[in-house]
Each structure stands twice: as structure tokens, then as C-alpha cells.
Design a protein around this nucleic acid. Structure first.
Lengths: 107, 107
DNA sequence: CGGATTGATAGCCATGCGGTTATGAATTAA
DNA sequence: TTAATTCATAACCGCATGGCTATCAATCCG
């Protein structure tokens, strides 16, 4: 689905949103309030960013009482990695290097 | 520079622009006209997209007579790859996957 | 030279998007 | 039960952005 790719790129295009995702990747499970405190924007803004990230498959929410915990879904970056590999071949080079190592180990 | 990263993500966020870059990655060196013909948008639109891509370090231009050739700068994707690695640990995951394979092969 | 092609820029318009405040629903605490 | 906290949604606003047409400069061809 190229649609999913579009959604993903769009979700990552905003710095604030990317900041939230980065924070979740670093610090794991956080509430909306915690995320809001250091985001520099209002709580509703954060909530909307989280909604966008969720739709892009980059976070999951875990409601718990009156607060909602969010955490990163790193696998959501998959399409981005795939696309990068298609475009660039950086990744291939590194993977190839790795495969070489493996072959050598195999002998 | 986080600024460069911002520029890069922004440049890749638009589908039309990404399409142009993909095309350049596939087909190599192309003129503005060639890119316009299959882009679905007007020539000025293409020119502006190319300008954006150039500023993001994703393409280089090569003026030649009255036409300008553009080609992809794959290294421009570097910051994207770096960021992905920082976030995800896909790399690790894949390494782990490979290790699993090795273990199985080893038995 | 004169007409045609190519690409870049300027100017305009519509839409999308991120930010805000206001408010409501749900849960927790007093 | 009342008050306070937490989060989501709605409504609104301003700006950035992508699309277009028009145009200009430069180059190539007759």
C-alpha cells in the first residue's frame, strides 16, 4: 500500500510530532500530560498529534483510568525503511557487508 | 544539525515530490521536461519541487544548453537513515533475527 | 534574424494543517 | 456528592504550501 507510506511520511513531517515520537522511543510509556509538559504546545495539540501518529501506526494507546498512556510502535517505521532501501541501497550495502561476515563465519 | 533533518523530512512529505525523487532514483539522469511529462502536474510545479529537493540535498542539477538535467543524490538520505536507526533499533532487530537464523543453522 | 522550445520565476488562489481556547466526558479525590 | 484532574473533540484562525497561468530569459533550429 502506497497509502500507508503517504500517511507515514506525512506523520513524520512535522517537527513537534516527530519530537513526541522520539520522546516515546527514548522514554517508553508516557501519559498525555507528561508528553504535554515538555512539548511546548497545548494539551489538545498533543492529543491531535498522538491521534495522527496512531493512525500512522507509530504509537499505541493504553487507556488507564482517566489517563491515557502512549508508547512507540517502532515496527511502524518499517515502510520507511523499506522505501529507503528501495531508493538508496545504503542499507543494502550494510546488509551485504553483514551477509559477507555471515558467509565467512559459515565456512 | 537538526535543521537539515527538518528540511529532509519536509521535502519527502509531499507525494508528488517523492514521486519525482523516486523516478530519478530509478531512471537516473532526467530533464525537467521528461519529469514533467509523467508527473501529472505542470512544469512550473515540477521546477519548484526540484528546487525544494535540491535544497534538501536530494538532487543535483546539471544545466546543459537550454535544458537542465537532474539526478538523485542518494547520500542525501543519510540523515533519514541515521534517525531511523536512532529511533528504532531495527538494525538490532534484524541483527537479532539473523542471530536467530544462525543459531538454528548451528544446531 | 525569427520562431520555437525549455526551464525558472512571479503572482494568485484554494486548501490543509498546526496552533489556540472552550467545552464535555470520564475518572479520581475530598 | 462535589471538586479537581485528565484527556478528547469541536470550532475557529492564520499561515504555509501546492497547484495554476502568465511571462521572461536563454538556447536551439529554420
Amino acid at each position: 500500500m502506497a497509502k500507508a507510506r503517504d500517511t507515514l511520511f506525512a506523520a513524520l513531517s512535522d517537527p513537534t510530532r516527530r519530537g513526541i515520537f522520539e520522546r516515546l522511543c527514548r522514554d517508553g510509556d508516557l501519559t498525555v500530560r507528561a508528553l504535554t509538559l515538555q512539548s511546548g504546545v497545548s494539551q489538545p495539540a498533543v492529543s491531535r498529534h498522538l491521534k495522527t501518529l496512531k493512525q500512522a501506526g507509530l504509537v499505541i494507546d493504553r487507556p488507564e483510568g482517566r489517563q491515557t498512556h502512549y508508547s512507540a510502535r517502532r515496527e511502524g517505521l518499517g515502510p520507511l525503511v523499506d522505501w529507503t532501501r528501495q531508493m538508496g541501497g545504503f542499507w543494502e550495502e550494510r546488509l551485504d557487508a553483514l551477509e559477507d561476515v555471515l558467509k565467512r563465519m559459515d565456512q
